[in-house]
Design a protein around this nucleic acid. Structure first.
Lengths: 347, 347
DNA sequence: CTGAAAGCGCTTACAG
DNA sequence: CTGAAAGCGCTTACAG
């Protein structure tokens, strides 16, 4: 069976409580005893039972991860593994493990989160998206459980700690970039309108147009799923307009890939006939044809910072108000929208 | 504080043990009592403490996931999220959650696994790779803890349950496909030689050549990392040979992407100058330029089946010997190696 | 059909 | 500096 603290205690000729203190490296235990106990642990191959510890301790040293409910699709977006990598790195540095729910529908995800929280399975939660009317965030907020959102939360954001890209600014910059290249008919293809990221990027796009004195046309704003197929469909519709756009801001690299494939199939040249610019700069952006001009948003950094904030909250070293961390972005210019120079930092 | 079984018991006017039985839906409790207890749970917002339950129970309802140690890089390969999606789906169907370690180096990963196992944090483990001399598999095997490998294990595979593609066959088919298109100078670019997947695909490649009466040339076999950069470097070397290959079998789509970019940069046409075929058929394969001919290996299915096998083992409904599940594959013909017909099922 | 009690393997005041 | 004891919140033989 399992080696417990009792076996170790007996072997080292001390009380179980002493063994426990050695594990916690309590300063009140003599060096001699510590060494003796440690070598007993080594010899017997002792490893603490995590559940017993968590039960007595009320801490779990693990972090819960909440993906958007349509995990099926989202998991295919390279955003996900990259943000996970950032989370994992920081978590590991601080001795935390990661815990994922496996729900698919919105209700399943919510009940998974409730189970994690009420069941004390995790010490805190990271929500990897921000969507309007999201039950998960509502729930976490009202229970006052430690949590951090990746993306800008809806409602009273001031009480929620979140990590985000300045998507509004990025949307503006990207649109301005196209304008500066001479484009006047610029369309926008976004993902679900319920997502904060879509709204922010679109608003930035609209602002840039207004700043340039170009009216914002409703028929130039398309919605699609956050994957390649969605991008393909959206661009087809745009090109059927009487005055089709000469450039398009796409809210996500994966969608942009779909846009590009579709344009190629239709015999249109990129960037000559239609310029394309998008966001996230996932590694495939570099390998599409033509390579995508995209906003590097440091996805790894988003995950890393989110975890950092969460650990602060768990350790009570966080301020009592919601904190906001903005991770800087920059435009990586490649071939999909007419090249000016290789990698220009905007602003 | 937390609502415990005691509060519920008091509220429903029964003993804690009865509440526990209601949770487990024991048939020995009357319908009336069940209803009363359930409405108390509802009313008080009760959720079982998972650690207390696991401690008393010796079961955790969660599955541990082991990624290759260089998680940093691997996580960028779309293979990972896709296999995770398969695992997650099956796990969710059976009420299991997922637990990930966050180690980066080989030692960290191993100690993470030991902690999961000895600390009874999980009921079983899925190893998401197969590498020669892997300590994790050695450890799991000797502790007789339930585990499943995605990929073909080394050593005495007969005692280990694993889920795999028939990579040897796939390698053979793909090479034969190139041969049938008229190629005689066919190279192979593989990932780390320590990985089972590389070895199997390479052996299949060599067998196909031998079957066709073509000698296997050492200088036609290149090694690289499993990502785009590696592919780029490898192909450059191959093209510097006196008799450069006219076709190349690449062991992974991501590497193939690097190969394709490099060839384009060098002004070579695909498939006219060099034909490229690869494995995994991740979604970007379809959107590269030209679209990649690739072996669809059903990554989702690998994850799904692996989880299935693991759950069998955990529930003791698995046979006492190692079981092998082979998930079928087929070649998806696109433009990167000269098209014959759109989607042909090989064999 | 239900309850009282012991136990799962830890931690942590309380003594000394 | 160390130990005995209670407790974390559940489950599960054992009685009845």
């Amino acid at each position: 069976m399992q080696i417990t603290i009792k076996e170790v205690a007996k072997h080292a000729n001390v009380a179980p409580s002493t063994v426990s203190r050695v594990i916690a490296n309590s300063p009140r235990i003599s060096q001699k005893t510590k060494e003796r106990v440690r070598s007993s642990m080594e010899e017997l191959g002792y490893h603490p039972n995590i559940h017993a510890r968590s039960l007595a301790n009320r801490s779990t040293q693990s972090i819960g991860l909440v993906m958007p409910s349509a995990a099926t699709k989202t998991l295919q977006n390279p955003f996900f593994p990259e943000v996970l990598r950032g989370i994992s790195t920081k978590a590991h540095q601080n001795g935390y493990s990661l815990y994922m729910t496996t729900g698919v529908t919105e209700e399943e995800v919510l009940s998974g989160v409730i189970e994690m929280v009420q069941g004390r399975r995790v010490d805190g939660v990271i929500v990897l998206y921000s969507r309007e009317d999201d039950k998960v965030v509502q729930y976490l907020r009202q229970t006052k459980f430690p949590f951090v959102v990746v993306g800008k939360p809806f409602g009273d954001a001031s009480s929620i700690t979140y990590v985000d890209t300045d998507n509004y600014l990025a949307g503006r910059e990207v649109t301005k970039h196209l304008y500066n290249l001479g484009h006047r008919c610029i369309a926008f293809i976004g993902g679900s309108d319920k997502l904060a990221v879509t709204q922010d990027r679109r608003n930035g796009y609209a602002t840039a147009l207004m700043e340039a004195g170009i009216p914002v046309r409703e028929d130039y704003i398309a919605r699609a799923e956050f994957m390649t197929k969605g991008g393909a469909k959206a661009v087809r519709e745009l090109l059927q307009l009487e005055e089709p756009p000469t450039a398009v801001v796409v809210s996500d690299d994966m969608m942009a890939l779909g846009v590009i494939s579709t344009l190629s199939e239709m015999g249109l040249k990129i960037p000559e006939d239609v310029a394309v610019v998008s966001f996230n700069n996932v590694y495939i952006a570099e390998h599409s044809n033509p390579p995508l001009t995209s906003v590097e948003i440091n996805i790894f950094g988003l995950g890393f910072e989110a975890t950092n904030c969460l650990i602060e909250q768990i350790g009570d070293s966080a301020p009592p108000y919601g904190k906001r961390v903005i991770v800087p972005h920059y435009l990586v210019v490649r071939q999909s929208c007419g090249q000016k120079n290789k990698t220009e930092i905007v602003e």
